[in-house]
Amino acid sequence: MPLLSVKNLAVRFETHHGTVRAVDGISFDMEEGETLGLVGESGSGKSVTNLALLGLIPSPPGVMSGQVHFDGQEISALSEPELRTVRGNRIAMIFQDPMTSLNPLLTVGRQMTEVLELHKGKSHSEAMRLAAVGLGEVGLSEPESRLAQYPHELSGGMRQRVMIAMGLLCEPRLLLADEPTTALDVTIQAQILELMAEVQRRHGTAIILVTHDLGVVAGTADRVAVMYAGRIVEEGPTHQLFKNPHHPYTQGLLSSVPRLDSDTSQKMSSIPGTPPDLAEMPPGCAFAPRCPNVQVECKSERPELLPSGVPGRSNACPLFASAGSAEADSAEAHP
């Protein structure tokens, strides 16, 4: 029984321009202590997926369908008060920008104890004590004096540590990290990622790491799901997927990562075209208009995400089944 099982999750928004399918039927499973990297470009539905897992899709105009099964509970069937006992308690979330995700008027201590007082009914002094422990755990020096400080007195990296400590206070089983390192500089990024990995080792927390930075995913995630236009187009173990991408979109994505040792006289490669308008999706494969080896049937039939023959991997490109599997298998044999 996986910790989190998402089946056919879809979120659509009814707007003036038509129905926008931000998430269009995605399914994945997660085990305890696993890190899943959710990659994709802006607008591919990564953050909406996260919010949907917490039942936080504003409705109207949002409509959510599909099943989210978490820790023996059907999240998608819970009422709002029931959902509130899950949020922050068993599923926590950390945000992209630590500069704005802390209330500027509350001290760090006040802010951190809020979640404990809310979910665990702790007294203020007990909550403060736990908050100090939490801050020590994420590597902040002098945690007890940090509790009295305001967010503007902390640096960006420190604030993100505070956010992580806050997310972990109730010992959630699942941590949703929505681009946790995007707003930080590279050295701090590495520290934060290392911190998250360590926290995961200690608590066995499962992490969904949403990012558009392939480097971050390569270093931390066990498995990667690549999203495009609200659908997962390819999923697999990080190492294999990066070494041998099956889906043309993943291939394009990986080849457009700039490399230090590349020839500077050549232009950087990129995927031609732009992502489709989510309100006017093409009937077939969403990537078909930009795909280098597009076929006629790609434009009419929507491909499903299917196991691709290699264990643990799946892919939504029907062409791969015939063209790529032999080559992929040989590559898998000698990594």
């Binding site: 917490l54 936080l56 959902l83 509130r84 006992t85 899950v86 949020r87 922050g88 308690n89 926590a92 979330m93 945000f95 992209q96 920008d97 704005t100 995700s101 802390l102 209330n103 500027p104 809020e114 979640v115 809310l118 979910h119 956010m163 806050m166």
Partner: peptide, 16 residues
């Protein structure tokens, strides 16, 4: 503002 989102995600009610 993200801290309001963060509070929502934390499980706080609208009144809170």
């Amino acid at each position: 503002a993200e801290f309001v989102q963060a509070a929502r995600v934390m499980g706080a009610s609208t009144f809170h």
